[in-house]
Amino acid sequence: MGYKILKKRVLGPGSKLMEIEAPFVAKAAKPGQFIILRVFEKGERIPLTIARTDRERGVVTIIFQEVGKTTIHLGLLNEGDELADFVGPLGKPTDIENYGTVVAIGGGFGTAVLLPLVTALKKAGNKVITIIGARTKELVLLEDEMKKIVDEVLITTDDGSYGMKGLVTDGLKFLMDREKVDAVYAVGPVPMMKAVADMTRGPGIKTIVSLNPIMVDGTGMCGACRVEVGGKTKFACVDGPEFDAHEVNFDLLMKRLKMYRKEEQYSLELFKKRLEKEAV
């Protein structure tokens, strides 16, 4: 079974969208779930969140940031190329409830993960406000797509080049001061999710985060993705990827994400050198 790339689109600097032909995954996927792919025969298995599915066409949309060897390699593939492997949907789907007012926060690239989630939250009757946070204007992702779905979109940029100047937590504080917030979803870099969790812990606002640890099989077999939640070890691939933000040990997660940093850098350098050679 080939997993053909049907569409490729550049979303912003270093971030791309791809539509992949994967009918079984498209049919079964629910918000909050992810896939694991391998680009080629010698490739590693990497988890990516499902951004959108089209059951009729049997298509799964992934959005990724080109940060390492595998994602850069993936980004170099073109429409019509096939991925070696594509498996899913993995992980538990999000528990969708009618909370009232929900703030969905996407930090940088995490915004991609929010699309299916906010769609489901709206359908369940929630008032949904999305905060999209980015370093600078050109890194703001999916604003138009988001505006079509939710009640309000608030943009924050670190440098103030677009929307509100500041971090997503500044945006959240603004919203919490303005109105009653019943639940928060936060997806993005670990320090951002931690900061959001710290902010909502005091007022006791239910907060869910989607974690992105290193994984191999994604079906509970290896334990690479272990995270600490409420003092207990959990496997993010089968027990998550979503957890109660107030219970997550973010410091451990941050450390574990760095486990192969040296190897990742080495692999990336070699790959870049190879690309330069090929370009000559």
């Binding site: 010698k42 590693e44 298995r45 191999v216 334990g223 690479a224 760095k258 486990m259 692999s267």
Partner: peptide, 27 residues
């Protein structure tokens, strides 16, 4: 960091061929 389940350790080596890193991508 550095503590593996045997499953992960062996899967990285046997299935993913991590002993051939960087020719294979899995470290």
């Amino acid at each position: 960091l550095g503590i593996y389940s045997a499953n992960e350790f062996l899967t990285r080596i046997n299935l993913m061929r991590a002993y051939k890193f960087p020719d294979y991508d899995t470290p």
